[in-house]
Design a protein around this nucleic acid. Structure first.
Lengths: 176, 176
DNA sequence: ATTTACATGTAAGGGGTTACATGATTTG
DNA sequence: CAAATCATGTAACCCCTTACATGTAAAT
């Protein structure tokens, strides 16, 4: 039940339409909880029916656009969710599976993929670091947005891990 | 399409029954690709129908137990899969979502969860390190099982990352 | 007027999770 | 022979993914 709460969080930061949410997901919450517009529209409908958000009436000039805002019940549900006991979700990584398979049947075909993934992770790392420089400049003493910064740090740390691990793994595969 | 290839890999290492596979998943491949017995039986059926594995006839004394082995077609399919071009799969982490929500609605309820997850990751890290000591002792020059060691290293590195990140994040939450 | 971009949806299918069902073998 | 364990499966549900459908507003 993560997606509805991701949407509640995004709507609390700023009331939005479905498409706006989709775009904002693509460059923030979507980094650790991606969602397509189909998913988002479906959840918006459910959240509205559940009485957690409401449709803000729009001037007729705005066409069929619907803008939503969070109701007090929605905020309460989100607070409760943050405190819930949840087991760490099972971790799935196809690339590790493929490396494991390569260990059994021979790993030559995998090298190109490792290189490609390394480049992608380097790119993602660079983009996270750019966001950090822009949103959390060092001269600004972190205060109210300390937690947002922790979230971004997780993204940075994970990308750094993959870059390191892929580099070392490529060396091991090259030595085959 | 990862699970069938995970099963092919496991069966190549050792022909097994469905339940045996389930148990072996729990302590190896399952670390980065968990699967329940229901999933595994379903996939075994599909793999057999596809002609990638076959049911080794059992002596009647073994009850309804079915043991499978990989056919040449199955090995070929696995080799092809390791070389496939696959985009890195989208990363989803509910704990980061909850921290992001806590940044908006207040993060007091989350502290206990952060502590609990920290303990769980420390435990998992310890168990990976124990496996490493047992299966890849330092005096043994890594040769044929270099790739398996790389896979385990990924697990170790990721757990180390989470332990660090959770420790720092708890400090940030405590300062609220 | 036609094209492009905006905006909201529907439908089908796949994989994973949970609960339940059933038969065979072993153990006390 | 009763209970526990082993072993294989079925069914229902949920969420995500992909492809497709529909209508509106702005641009040229």
């Amino acid at each position: 039940m993560s997606l509805p709460h991701a949407i509640l969080t995004a709507l609390l930061e700023k009331p939005s339409s479905g498409l706006e949410l989709t775009r904002r997901f693509d460059k923030s919450i979507g980094f650790f909880w991606p969602a397509t517009h189909q998913q988002i529209y479906r959840e918006l409908g459910k959240l509205e029916q559940a009485g957690l958000i409401r449709d803000i009436p729009q001037p007729p000039s705005r066409g069929q656009r619907k803008e939503y805002e969070v109701l007090p019940e929605g905020r309460a549900a989100l607070v409760a969710w943050t405190a819930e006991r949840q087991e760490p979700k099972s971790f799935r990584e196809p690339l590790l599976l493929r490396l494991r398979a390569a260990a059994v049947v021979g790993g030559y075909g995998l090298r190109a993929e490792l290189e490609r993934h390394l480049a992608l992770h380097q790119q993602q790392l660079a983009s996270y670091l750019a966001i950090e420089q822009h949103d959390f400049p060092p001269e600004q003493a972190a205060t109210e947005n300390r937690l947002q910064h922790r979230v971004l740090s997780a993204g940075i740390g994970l990308e750094q891990f993959w870059v390191e691990w892929l580099t070392e793994t490529l060396a091991a595969v090259a030595a085959e």
